[in-house]
């Protein structure tokens, strides 16, 4: 049996029903806001957006960036972990063989920002800290769908050096 707690309505006595005292109370509230904000602007919470920008919280997830190794090449090893984890299925990678070492690298690496929900799953799935969402850059609106497809160069241009040693040593 579900226990239902019945909350009695406060009785609508004549004071409430005559409506004017309650209206007066409401007018006092809106009148207070009116005069306080008119004279001092104290209560106003709006920020004047393009001129005044708020700092983003540190965990804000913006556009993806691909991190680099010490030699400047891309850290990604094209393991497809991120595209497998992605719930929106918006990462498409074509893998290739690196010449300098026995490792793969992404020939193309595309993130479709129309589909992306900025959940950060790709970032969590990546075994070698190659993809991050901490760029702080908004996904900008575009006129065509094609412009929303961000390729390897775009993502790398936001990237920076990472020397994380997750997943063991590398040469």
């Amino acid at each position: 049996m579900v226990k239902v707690k019945v909350v009695e309505r406060p009785p609508a006595d004549l004071v409430v029903q005559s409506w004017l005292p309650e209206l007066w109370k409401g007018m006092k509230v809106s009148g207070r806001h009116f005069f306080v904000n008119l004279l001092t602007q104290k209560g106003i919470v709006t920020s004047q957006y393009p001129e005044v920008k708020r700092a983003y919280p540190p965990r804000f997830r913006g556009k993806h960036r691909l991190m680099r190794r010490e030699d400047g090449s891309v850290r990604c090893v094209a393991c497809f972990m991120c595209s497998t984890a992605c719930p929106a299925d918006c990462i498409s990678i074509v893998a290739g063989q690196r010449d300098d070492e026995n490792e793969k690298f992404p020939v193309t690496f595309e993130v479709d920002f129309i589909k992306c929900v900025f959940c950060g799953m790709c970032e969590e799935a990546c075994p070698c800290d190659a993809i991050r969402l901490d760029s702080g850059v908004h996904r900008a609106p575009a006129y065509t769908r094609k412009e929303e497809l961000n390729g390897k160069e775009d993502l790398l241009s936001l990237g920076s050096l990472s020397v994380a040693r997750q997943g063991g040593e590398f040469k």
Partner: peptide, 10 residues
């Protein structure tokens, strides 16, 4: 203007 400052907007 009045509605906005009553609602704490600009």
């Amino acid at each position: 203007k009045m509605s906005s400052i009553i609602q704490d907007r600009i």
